[in-house]
C-alpha cells in the first residue's frame, strides 16, 4: 500500500501539488485523472522525489520515504514507467532492461515474465533500444521497471503516442501485471474508458489538488465532464 498524505511539491518557487492525499491500496490500480498540466505527472515524480522540493508523507507499507533520495525510493520498491518512455537509445535492449535491476534486491536479471509478455524484446536483446517503435519502446520501459522487482508501478500515460493496434495490447498487459503479479499500479491516464476498465480507484486532479476520489465505480460522467472536458 502506498499512501500520500498532505503532499506539497514544488518546481523552483512554484507549487505544483497542493495538499494531495491519496492511497493506492495493495494489489489495486489507482487511476490518476485530469486535464493536461494539472499535476498528474508531477504526482508520480513527487512519489520518486524527482521534483525540486516537497513536504508531506509518502508511506510504502508503513515506511516513510518522504525524506529519502530517489534511488532509495526505487530500492524500496517503487518503479517508474515515465511519459515518453525515456529508454536509452544507444543502450542495447538488454542493457536497458538490466538498468532497472539496480533497484532490485537480488542480482540484476531479466524478469521471468518478460519473455511471456514481450517476446519481441527477448528476440532482439542485443539491438539498440533506439531502433524500436514507440510501442516496443513502451514495452521496454515496462520491462525495465519490472526488472526492479517493484511493489508499486508508476505508469505515466502508457498508451500515449502509440500506434492504435498496440494500444490495446499494452492495456491488457497492464491489467495482467496487476492481476497476475499482484502489482500495485498508479496509472496516469487521459483515457477514461481504459481507466474504468482497469482501475479499482481513481483520483481526479485539478490545479495540483485532488478534487474527487474514490472507487472507480463512483466516478460519475458529471465529474468527468466537469474536470476533464476541454
Amino acid at each position: 500500500m502506498l499512501t500520500l498524505t498532505n503532499l506539497d511539491s514544488f518546481y523552483g518557487r512554484s507549487q505544483a501539488l497542493h495538499d494531495v492525499s491519496v492511497t493506492a491500496r495493495a494489489g489495486t490500480i489507482l487511476a490518476v485523472l485530469g486535464r493536461n498540466g494539472v499535476g498528474k505527472t508531477t504526482l508520480l515524480r513527487s512519489i520518486l522525489g524527482l521534483t525540486d522540493r516537497q513536504s508531506g508523507a509518502i508511506r510504502l507499507e508503513g515506511e516513510d520515504l518522504a525524506a529519502q533520495p530517489t534511488y532509495r525510493r526505487a530500492k524500496a520498491g517503487i518503479a517508474y514507467v515515465p511519459q515518453g518512455r525515456m529508454i536509452i537509445p544507444d543502450f542495447t535492449i538488454r542493457e536497458n532492461i538490466l538498468m532497472g535491476g539496480f533497484a532490485a534486491k537480488g542480482p540484476r536479471a531479466i524478469p521471468e515474465i518478460v519473455p511471456k509478455i514481450f517476446p519481441y524484446l527477448m528476440d532482439n536483446l542485443d539491438r539498440p533500444g533506439g531502433v524500436l517503435s514507440g510501442g516496443q519502446q513502451q514495452q521496454l520501459a515496462i520491462a525495465r521497471a519490472l526488472a526492479a522487482e517493484p511493489k508499486v508501478l508508476l505508469m505515466d500515460e502508457p498508451t500515449e503516442g502509440i500506434q492504435p493496434n498496440i494500444v490495446e495490447q499494452i492495456e491488457d498487459i497492464i491489467i495482467r501485471l496487476n492481476t497476475e503479479l499482484g502489482l500495485t499500479i498508479i496509472l496516469v491516464e487521459q483515457n477514461v474508458g481504459f481507466a474504468r476498465r482497469a482501475a479499482h480507484d481513481f483520483a481526479m486532479l485539478e490545479n495540483g489538488r485532488v478534487v474527487a476520489d474514490g472507487a472507480i465505480a463512483s466516478l460519475t460522467e458529471e465529474t468527468v465532464t466537469r474536470h476533464m472536458a476541454i
Partner: peptide, 18 residues
Amino acid sequence: RAIMRNPQIAAACGIDVR
C-alpha cells in the same frame, strides 16, 4: 553510462547518482 544519458531516470532505476 546511465547517469551520463539521463541522471533522473538513472536515479529512478535505483542508481545512487551521488
